[in-house]
Design a protein around this nucleic acid. Sequence first.
DNA 1: CATAAAATTTAGGTATAACTAAATTTTTGT
DNA 2: ACAAAAATTTAGTTATACCTAAATTTTATG
Lengths: 221, 221
Amino acid sequence: MKKKLTISTEDYLKTIYELTEQGESASTNALAKKLNISAPSVTGMIKKLAASKPALVEYQKHQGVTLTREGKRAALEVIRHHRLLEAWLVQTLGYSWDEVHEEAERLEHVISEDFERRIAAAMGHPTRDPHGELIPTEDLKMPEDPSIPLSALRSGQSGTITCVKSSETALLRHLEELGLVPETEIQVVDYSPFDHNLTIKIGRQTLVLGLNITSKIFIEI
Amino acid sequence: MKKKLTISTEDYLKTIYELTEQGESASTNALAKKLNISAPSVTGMIKKLAASKPALVEYQKHQGVTLTREGKRAALEVIRHHRLLEAWLVQTLGYSWDEVHEEAERLEHVISEDFERRIAAAMGHPTRDPHGELIPTEDLKMPEDPSIPLSALRSGQSGTITCVKSSETALLRHLEELGLVPETEIQVVDYSPFDHNLTIKIGRQTLVLGLNITSKIFIEI
DNA sequence: CATAAAATTTAGGTATAACTAAATTTTTGT
DNA sequence: ACAAAAATTTAGTTATACCTAAATTTTATG
């Protein structure tokens, strides 16, 4: 029953998942930008995904796409592969968290279910990848995430970093230098309403962070 | 300078390498059979490989193909990936030697040079894969192999198994049960000239092996 | 509410890498 | 040496997945 999908298809499904995670449908243009593919090509591919049996996406002209149950399963499978691979590259081959993305991006499409099970077991079935992203479970459910963006915190609030949502090497290196990595506890000591800067404390260190950073760091209070 | 090759191209080059290892050129038909691709498709692909710049193969109509220096380098790169991956799947994820081939077959095309270096270093730069196949060096030279097929031995001769040249799951399982794995010492006690059966001893165990097996086991005397 | 801007789709093409059927070339057996 | 068999190539298609240019639809604005 389960058809073998092409790498291209898997990339579309994964990207649609990411764009529709907050509820809305994914627009052709947003997909095109994220995938680095022209908008017309995306339209064509979407039509194919919608016409395939079983349909992988729900699509109406000019209205964007959403995933069907089948499409979502396939997307979560790829995302599980990706995140397990990232964790595993870091844990067993000494990759740093800013180096793993590209490698996982290629490997995620070719590993077997057996391989997936073996690395998951070898790591003791981790629930988050090195960036703190939640790993879909073996039965392909995405766990609930109680985290909120750091940018939503205000003076006096504190919590622990759960996740840094970025695959930008330079940003990740920078954050690591600042100590802004998962598991770190932080306190917000000031909020500047016009530029949305947050002043935070990590241990005895004080940092002022702009929205471009605080919107990518997620916190559990 | 180094162009990124397609998976298909890498598979052709690898297969041509294997078919031309003993010196002769590889025929269209032999390639077609090994790659499970129709002969006309192979002709077409060969022409492309010969026309590419730099040329990856040397080709004259009806005369088969050989690899150019560039083609050979690319083939050895893929073979190095494959064999390092096999070793690594066995050593770190508990795969058995009959399970690794398929997985390595897919992974070999997508791992980075960085990944290659990391697994090689993690294993202490192994020289042979789990079947005993020699791993091309980092500078892409294939080491000389002093081994000869078991089928070439005669009564009284003895040696150590270096390599089992097969990726057939069933055969590999069988050989493992018989103890016919690399590093094992054997003595030939009898040769039957008409059916080419060899009677051998492993420790105190005596086995009679046909040509289909003895031609795939390699020995260092 | 009309029109400009933005988003999207249609139309027509390209490259890669496979396929089958038919033609040709090479090899082999007598 | 020549005909049959085997190997190989040519010719013509197909599927996937991308592209650009142009047309259309939707959304936003004065």
